[in-house]
Design a protein around this nucleic acid. Structure first.
Length: 582
RNA sequence: GCGCCAGUAGCUCAAUCGGAUAGAGCAACGGCCUUCUAAGCCGUAGGUUAUGGGUUCGAUUCCCCUCUGGCGUACCA
């Protein structure tokens, strides 16, 4: 599909703004484009009017009026130009409206309201025709191409393989998964990546912890290190290793035993994580091991590069990076005075490696406890010659687990975390995924376990799924009564207020997808699906689909199918099932 | 102390660049099943957007002060 008619800005927010580029596009393509993005057509017409009257170029944003009765679309361009043109906004609006050339004849009503809003209502027939378009577009409805094929690497979860995945990971996992889906829907080439910290201090602690439990199983009491891992899963790991390897490691020298058991425990933990995430319907393109970087000495090459730029210095026996020269609050240590590379040092190499693999933009999803870490990584990447915009971190706020109305305190070392698997089993994957993407990333998410366990109407995911099941049921019923989908149905019969409202709602889908991708926020999508479900339930309740009036029934079957298509489309993005029966 | 995030209806949350009368769900109250799924629909009530200033035609949104909560402020990850 071509977008040559419009110049797409780097700022995705300007995508609904028409450029001044004129069209050599055929009328047929125009028409298709207009159906897909009527906002672009409206913006273009207003821009033309501005040019022809005030000889003014302006950014024309098309938005949805707060109240439906005001119109289908609105623009505040007249308000914005009041100062520049030194004229009353309403006067400007009147001039614009008088000079709009609606070649496609799709504007039914253009009004000026309030201080100078221009409200545009499209003809009923235009709306009705979108039903066929939605059905024919099917899975591709909502697609766009403003991502321009840019390669994005989205790294999320990347939990330490020293313990089970917890509920915070569950939120990040669902969010990252859906974000990639959304980005690709609008034309990016985004991939999912998981970074496995399979080296360093924490892994040594894991080995020591497992080794201690292992020895205890052979009645050789050994304490878990003070800063080691105390959780019961460590005992489980030790027992598994005993079953598989017997007392083989008892005779090992302590250090060697810890090292070997660390490796074995690590393999088990990583396998568990992969399995859990797969069952949670998340499949990564890349699982990247920290050890691979260390083996290749990539982190030392980074240090050399920084040294060559004169951005390092030694102090107190440690090697420092001048991150404060790139916006960080203070300089950071790369090599400790014990000669140990810091996590930070390896992490720089890791992010550089993503660029080396051809990614143009990096996104990381981190927990709130890591936000202080953003500036130093950003500084390092800038020092290596990358633009600030090429590395982005979205902080996903914490998840508060509530049980019996009480906040559950969690600590990984104390071992009383709530595991991701536990929640998924209680709540179900569909509901869990829906819950975890329902909130804005900046907001902490309260997860009431007892409430989520309830299989009741309080669960919003059921509301959406129920709408789908209902539609399927009606389609089945229609079939039994000799009524099949007829693409030539007369859509002009769809005139009931609930029908028009539903059609309008369905047409918001592409904008919802684009908005999510532009803002890197997922919560608009589940919210939208609930609105679609609500619009459908209302339509269903007030209008019978299968009636003696075959013409009308055919038209309503079309609307039903379009609704089903959008629901499936959206649920697919969330990777939530669309049950045919409930 | 400094930094990041948050503070909107009783509760959980929305509000798409700064736009019009701040919206949903749950809880509360009142209606609707002889008809394609009542996990549904319709209605009522609920607000000084934490506080005080500023910017402007217009502020939940941007800026500053104050208050409250979470997190961070390592040669841990």
């Amino acid at each position: 599909m071509s977008i040559s008619l419009f110049i797409y800005s780097n700022r995705p927010s300007e995508n609904f703004m028409a450029s001044s580029a004129s069209g050599e596009m055929s009328n047929a393509k125009w028409s298709m484009r207009v159906i897909m993005k009527v906002e672009l057509y409206i913006a273009e017409k207003i821009k033309e009017a501005l040019k022809n009257t005030y000889d003014q170029d302006a950014t024309v944003f098309i938005e949805k009026p707060r109240q439906e009765t005001w119109g289908d679309f609105a623009t505040t361009v007249a308000l914005g130009l009041a100062k520049t043109l030194r004229k009353a906004p309403r006067q400007i609006a009147e001039t614009i409206v008088a000079n709009i050339a609606d070649e496609k004849k799709i504007f039914a009503n253009v009004t000026i309201d309030g201080p100078g809003f221009i409200n545009i209502t499209l003809s009923q027939s235009w709306w009705q025709n979108t039903v066929l378009h939605i059905i024919e577009t099917g899975e591709r409805f909502g697609e766009d191409d403003w991502g321009n094929g840019q390669r994005i690497n989205l790294e999320f979860v990347s939990a330490n393989p020293t313990g089970p995945l917890n509920v915070v990971s569950a939120r990040a996992a669902a969010t990252g998964d859906v974000l990639v889906e959304l980005l690709n829907k609008v034309g990016f080439a985004a991939e999912r990546e998981y970074y496995i910290n399979d080296a360093g201090r924490q892994i040594r602690l894991l080995g020591a912890s497992v080794a201690a439990r292992y020895m205890t199983l052979f009645n050789q009491k050994e304490d878990v290190p003070e800063d080691g891992y105390q959780g019961d899963y460590i005992i489980g790991l030790a027992e598994e290793l005993k079953t598989e390897h017997g007392d083989k490691f008892v005779s090992y020298e302590k250090q060697e035993r810890q090292s070997v058991l660390a490796k074995l425990a690590l393999e088990k933990m990583i396998a568990l994580h992969k399995k859990a995430l797969h069952e949670y319907r998340i499949d990564y393109q890349t699982w990247f091991c920290e050890s691979a970087l260390r083996d290749k000495k990539s982190h030392f090459k980074i240090v050399e590069a920084l040294k060559a730029k004169g951005l390092t210095y030694e102090k107190d026996g440690a090697l420092w990076f001048k991150s404060s020269e790139f916006g960080d609050a203070k300089d950071r240590v790369l090599v400790t005075n014990e000669g140990e590379p810091t996590y930070f040092m390896v992490d720089i190499a890791y992010h550089q490696n993503k660029f080396d693999r051809g990614f143009e933009v990096l996104y990381d999803l981190w927990g709130p406890d890591h936000h202080g870490y953003i500036d130093r990584v950003s500084a390092a990447l800038q020092a290596l010659g990358h633009a600030k915009e090429e590395f982005n971190v979205r902080i996903i706020q914490q998840v508060n687990m509530l049980r019996d109305g009480e906040l559950v305190k969690m600590s990984k070392r104390a071992g009383n975390i709530i595991e991701m698997n536990e929640v998924l089993q209680d709540v179900g994957i569909d509901a869990a995924r829906f819950f975890f993407v329902m909130r804005k990333l900046d907001s902490p998410l309260d997860f009431d376990i007892d409430l989520a366990k309830k299989r009741s109407d309080e669960n919003p995911v059921f509301y959406v799924q129920y709408a789908h099941a209902r539609i399927v049921n009606v389609i089945q019923f229609a079939k039994e009564n000799g009524l099949e989908l007829d693409l030539t149905a007369d859509l002009s019969l769809l005139t009931a207020s609930e029908e028009i409202a539903l059609i309008r709602k369905l047409n918001e889908y592409p904008n919802v997808v684009s908005t999510c991708a532009r803002l890197m926020e997922v919560h608009h999508l589940p919210a939208y699906l609930m609105e679609v479900a609500a619009a459908f339930h209302s339509f269903y309740h007030n209008n019978r689909i299968v009636t003696d009036d075959r013409q009308l029934s055919n038209a309503r079957m079309m609307l039903l199918e379009a609704t089903r298509s959008v629901l499936v489309n959206g649920l697919k993005m969330l990777r939530i099932s669309a049950p045919e029966r409930m």
